[in-house]
Every structure is written in structure tokens, then in C-alpha cells.
Amino acid sequence: MSEELPPRAVKVTDPRALRAYAHPLRMRLIGLLRGEGPMTATQAAARLDDNVPNCSFHLRQLAKYGFAERVPGADGRERPWRATTLYTSWDDDSDDPDMRAATDQINSVMLGVYLQRGQDYLAIRADEPVEWRVAAGFGDTLLHVTAAELRELTEQVEALLARYDERITDPAKRPPGSRPVTFVQMALPRAVVPPGGPAGGDGP
């Protein structure tokens, strides 16, 4: 039988926990645990090209705030770690200055992580099979929507992506030829254009 799927998401409401999560290596560690299953600090260090003491320290910090945990009942001196949920979420509508600062910090770290992933992909893109070069890549679309419409659109995208959740922890659910893909989601409102100004278009 497949491993029981962990809860889909945890919503972080404590700014201290959010700041603890807002660290490039910690976010990479959680991504590794979620994408490739439980592993020891030694295994994680090898996958991330880091050292074992550093990964061990940051895994303990993630566990302190509930993002990771030791695998129950695992044998061996160095027990594997696992992520406690598939995703981490937080609200950006808080009036608390500490929470707003924490969300700004984590969003900045996430942007840096995603930028690095994009650069890593470009470095190997020329060697990718043509079917994957066509399927993957970058793009953007300009929308004119209300805040409510944007929220609805985001929820629809999240619901569509959730259809693939079970493949994260159950390799038997993955069809032949599938591979891990990072789907980056950003919705970035632009400055308000004054009446009679340019309508805008695709592109930066």
C-alpha cells in the first residue's frame, strides 16, 4: 500500500515561524522532503551539495516550528526526516506589522529560490528532449481583473494542480515518462494606468 498522504497544507499565522521558514536552504530542504520523500540529513546534504551539520541544524529548526519531523519508528542511528505537509501557506492580509514584515521576507526568499531554479533550468535546457523543451518554459499573460476575480482564478489554478497531489507520495500513481516539475505561480498587480494611458500588452 502507498504511504498515507500528509495534509495538503499548513497555514502559518505566527510571524516567528514564518521567519524561521524564510531561509533558502530550509525551503530547499522542505522541497526535497516533499518531492523525494523522507531522507536523512546526510542524504539531503548530498542532494543539495551542502554539508551534513548545516543540513542537520536547519532540519532541526524546521522541526522546531512544525514544518518537518522524524519518521516514526525508523531504525538506525540517523533517523530520516519527512515534511509534515505538502504545502505551506500564509495570509498576506494581516495588519500586524510583524506578520507583514515576515511575509515580505519569505516572499523575497521565494523569489530568489525560483530565480535560481529558472537559471538552473536554462543551463540544461539545450540538452532537454524536444518534447520537454516545448512543454516547459516561461510565459506571462496580462489580465484586467478585480481582486475578487484574481482570487477566484488563483483558487481555480490551485484546484487544478491539486489533482496531482497523490503522485507526490505514491510513485505508483506516476505515469511512465513523468518527471518532477516546479510549477511557479505569481500574480503581480501592476501600477494603475491613468485613464487614456496605454492599454499594455504581453511581456515585462
Rank of each mutant, 00 (worst) to 15 (best):
D95N: 10
Q116H: 06
V193K: 07
A102V: 00
R100G: 00
S2H: 14
A172K: 07
A187W: 08
V193S: 09
D14Q: 10
R174S: 01
V184R: 11
T42F: 05
W132D: 08
D120S: 00
F138I: 04
G73R: 08
R16S: 15
Q61I: 10
Q105V: 06
P7T: 07
D140S: 13
A187M: 12
P129A: 00
P176D: 12
A45Y: 02
V157M: 12
G201V: 03
V181W: 00
D127E: 09
E69C: 08
Q43G: 11
V12Y: 02
H144S: 12
Q185M: 14
V184E: 08
K11D: 12
V130M: 09
E166F: 09
F183S: 07
D127M: 07
N54H: 14
R167F: 06
P38G: 02
M186A: 15
R16P: 00
P97K: 01
D93S: 14
Y87L: 12
E166G: 15
A46K: 13
D104R: 10
Q61N: 13
P53F: 09
T88R: 14
F138H: 08
K64C: 10
G118D: 04
R190Q: 15
L25V: 09
L48D: 07
L18G: 01
W132R: 09
R82Y: 05
A199K: 13
T182K: 00
